[in-house]
């Protein structure tokens, strides 16, 4: 096999898992709350700044900062649920209303970061030793390998939580049928707030990983991550945890292998065309169900 293509495939899988993590957290939020988190990318970038300042001000390595950022973001999500999300349930069209509210949050959060962190790109001054591994002719930076490991662990923990623990099962039950769950007596409100916390916590972790493996970040690029996350979840099917993982890896592979042959712009365009193609054939995504209107 062509060596460049092999390198592209490896990059595709690694980036694909990051995309999958973004999609996974978006889908957990959407599945339980029917909220499309338009501000997800901004929260990711906020997580990246978290890692940056944890290192700069507290001298913490990104790996130590990660659990702290998760907890801080989860707490923020828990609180934001009561401020923003709870009241939307009563609106004419909760899904669109949530999309718009989170759109507003995205703009406001982006502007806040611009005010407090300024427009310059930042990067984490953190290097691992050795900086990269060679597998035959394929080069894999250590940071990416570590990120891959972390994502696999997080996904496994999340899968265990969703499919093997009681609160996780309750969560999936909510995804499948909100009304029935209410009758059974699950505390929907508390579960919803925890879910939003979980979603934002994961966004914070994603941010740390983004800071770790990409050369730089700035307040402007949140949108890009939101868009990637959206493509991934629509590709896989809204609200479907497995769909997000598959969608993320497909999108990562498409983008990175295309990058071997063409420019970055064309590769991104191909990613969009993939989404549009899939959605026109299967309007609810690869794993979506008809019931999701």
């Amino acid at each position: 096999m062509n060596e460049l293509l092999l390198q592209g495939l490896v990059n595709g899988i690694i980036l694909g898992t990051i995309y999958a993590l973004i999609g996974l957290s978006l889908n957990v939020i959407f599945g339980v709350l029917r909220v499309v988190n338009f501000a997800h990318g901004e929260f990711i970038i906020l997580g990246a700044y978290g890692a940056y300042f944890a290192q700069k001000l507290l001298g913490l390595s990104p790996f130590l900062a990660m659990p702290l950022i998760f907890l801080a973001f989860a707490a923020m999500g828990y609180g934001l649920y009561f401020v923003l999300i709870k009241r939307l349930a009563k609106s004419d069209d909760p899904e669109h209303a949530s999309l718009l509210v989170m759109f507003g949050v995205a703009i406001a959060l982006g502007a806040l970061m611009l005010i407090f962190f300024e427009a310059d790109s930042r990067s984490l001054s953190y290097t691992l030793d050795p900086p990269f591994f060679m597998f035959g002719s394929v080069i894999v930076p250590t940071a990416k390998l570590v990120a891959l490991g972390i994502i696999v662990v997080i996904t496994a923990v999340l899968a265990f939580f969703l499919y093997r623990t009681l609160p996780g099962k309750a969560l999936r039950a909510i995804i499948m049928n909100r009304d029935a769950v209410q009758i059974v007596g699950v505390n929907l409100e508390r579960m919803s707030a925890l879910t939003f916390g979980l979603g934002l916590g994961l966004a914070g972790i994603t941010g740390v990983l983004v800071a770790l493996i990409f050369p730089a970040f700035s307040p402007f690029i949140g949108q890009d991550y939101t868009l990637i996350g959206f493509i991934v979840i629509v590709l896989g099917g809204l609200g479907h945890p497995v769909g997000a993982v598959v969608g993320g890896i497909i999108f990562g592979l498409t983008e990175q292998t295309a990058l071997v042959y063409t420019s970055g712009t064309t590769a991104t365009l191909l990613g969009f065309l993939l989404l549009i193609g899939v959605i026109l054939v299967r309007p609810t995504g690869l794993f979506g169900r008809e019931a999701l209107k």
């Binding site: 509210v101 507003g104 703009i107 406001a108 806040l112």
Partner: peptide, 8 residues
């Protein structure tokens, strides 16, 4: 920009 977001 911040105000636009908050207004939304």
């Amino acid at each position: 920009l911040l105000l636009l977001g908050v207004i939304i």
